[in-house]
């Protein structure tokens, strides 16, 4: 058998394999880059979707800091970062009532309106910040509030 015949038979076998494996299918209709652009544009609130992904993570991180924060300290019990609001234990509990309640008596830190200020409010606050309904600085305030107990 001559080389050309051998090569042709080899090529035909490969062609058969390619056909069988879908290497000659047309694939998706339309242009891939247009399909991707359309998919992106069809979700104009994609930044919100990202926020929904990042938000809970940030909230979880905030809650984790709340629980771990008090444990951060040197062996003699003093805070490592005394200037850091998160671990600042020197804040006096008696000052927060007037600052943190509105005229109706509802705590301004009760972001999820469940009547209790706890770690769950961090989630609600994160979402409010995402919607632009609360300043980011409220995270530090909420953290401080929760540390007071």
């Amino acid at each position: 058998m001559d080389l050309q015949t051998n090569n042709m038979e080899h090529l035909l076998a490969t062609l058969g394999e390619a056909r069988q494996n879908g290497a000659f299918d047309s694939g998706a209709s339309g242009y891939p880059w247009q399909a991707r652009t359309a998919a992106t544009q069809s979700s104009p609130k994609s930044w919100q979707a990202r926020l929904w992904k990042v938000g809970p993570l940030a909230a979880a991180a905030a809650v984790a800091v709340l629980f771990v924060g008090p444990e951060w300290g040197s062996e003699d019990g003093s805070p490592i970062g005394s200037g850091n609001a998160i671990v600042d234990n020197s804040v006096r509990p008696e000052t927060h009532t007037s600052e943190s309640s509105d005229s109706t008596g509802k705590s301004k830190y009760d972001y999820n309106d469940d009547g209790v200020v706890n770690g769950l409010d961090a989630q609600a606050l994160t979402e409010m910040i995402g919607r632009g309904e609360a300043p980011a600085s409220d995270v530090a305030e909420l953290t401080r509030q929760l540390l007071r107990g």
């Binding site: 879908g22 000659f24 694939g27 998706a28």
Partner: peptide
């Protein structure tokens, strides 16, 4: 290009994703 993707990968199930 689809043929090349098939030859490189030998993964018919990956072809569309690779090519896109």
């Amino acid at each position: 290009v689809r043929l090349v993707a098939w030859r490189i990968s030998h993964r018919p199930d990956w072809l569309d994703d690779i090519l896109n």
